[in-house]
Design a protein around this nucleic acid. Structure first.
Lengths: 186, 186
DNA sequence: TTGAAAACGGAGGGTGCCTCCGTATTATTA
DNA sequence: TAATAATACGGAGGCACCCTCCGTTTTCAA
């Protein structure tokens, strides 16, 4: 088993980046040939790396999710742990905004492998958020009895309660901020 | 302004029926050429009647909705008004089941005309349901303070709370039946 | 340096979208 | 009823996209 070729890896990256731009901007229906063009790569190369649209979606989404997870793990409670939480939730809302279309197009059935990957990633997020929450509680800044899952669930509920539109993000963030303010120790 | 041609009207009907079958069964992405074939009509005829996919969706949906409205208006309170309500709600769930994909594909922006049409149809449904509810209350069979809008909202909430799947309909109907049982005068 | 493994690109066959226009059908007029 | 004008029909054709296949090019390792 020889070392993977460098050009293959580079093209893979280029394709994922191109897909993020093209499929994010033009909606999940955008042409895969446009993605290949944007990546400066032949259509055959795209299909070799990603045998269908969905696999490509997953690759983009997984990479973005990983970024978000790392961001969460890098957060330091510092002076204002609640503000750290707020910032991270805002970033997550932004991700939902760009990925909504793609996520809707993902089949409900995932491979065992993807399921495991996602479970692991959300596990890491939950641990990171819980660490921040615990720090806030220890400092007497955040009320007790709140779990990371509560935050995530609330955030997704706000995201999906309203249909996409020009005001969507502002609306979601406003509700979210009210909720976050409610987390402060009275 | 002469009388509309009979063949045109007939083809329009055939196309709507074909669209209901093809787009209902094969999902909203199914080919419009398949719809035309199924209707036994040229593709040009389809496009003359329905300049794009969405207009065709609306036509199918509007017709189904009209059927449901007429069904509601035909209901007689009779001995068991609550059972009449239950039957109608079940029919509505069935409609949601077949139309879910299509509805999702409908653009959020509708013409003023469609909006008015739908508003009028739901108005008629509300009146019909309220009539049944009032009859039930008068007979002492249904608790007071329930409005048609409550029923519709509850039904849609159950429909959209769960993702589509093999158990979807049974699950929705079960929750709905529990709710309806709760409407009985204690 | 060299050759096999790995990856590349894009032509090609299939399908769908939508338009356009010559042909056929229908309603009206005489 | 026959002629005519309005209306509708069908499907060929042009374009884009999907995906596969394979001759060519690049890379890695011996």
């Amino acid at each position: 088993m020889r070392k993977p070729r460098a050009d293959a890896q580079k093209n893979r990256e280029k394709l994922i980046d191109a897909a993020r731009e093209v499929l994010g901007g033009g909606g999940p229906e955008a042409s895969l040939e446009a993605v290949a063009r944007r990546a400066g790569v032949g259509i055959g190369t795209l299909y070799r790396h990603f045998p269908n649209r969905e696999v490509l979606f997953h690759a983009v989404f997984r990479q973005d999710l990983e970024g978000l997870v790392e961001q969460a793990e890098a957060l330091e409670p510092g002076e204002a742990p609640l503000e750290a939480v707020r910032g991270w939730l805002h970033a997550n809302v932004a991700l939902v905004e760009t990925k909504r279309g793609m996520l809707g197009a993902l089949s409900v059935v995932m491979s065992e492998e993807s399921k495991q990957t996602y479970a692991e990633l959300t596990g890491r997020v939950v641990r990171a958020l819980n660490r921040l929450l615990a720090a806030g509680v220890a400092r007497g800044q955040i009320r007790e009895g709140i779990a990371a899952e509560d935050l995530l669930q609330t955030m997704y509920a706000f995201c999906y309660a309203r249909e996409p539109g020009p005001e969507w993000r502002a609306h979601v963030l406003r509700l979210l901020d009210i909720f976050i303010d409610g987390l402060r120790r009275a």
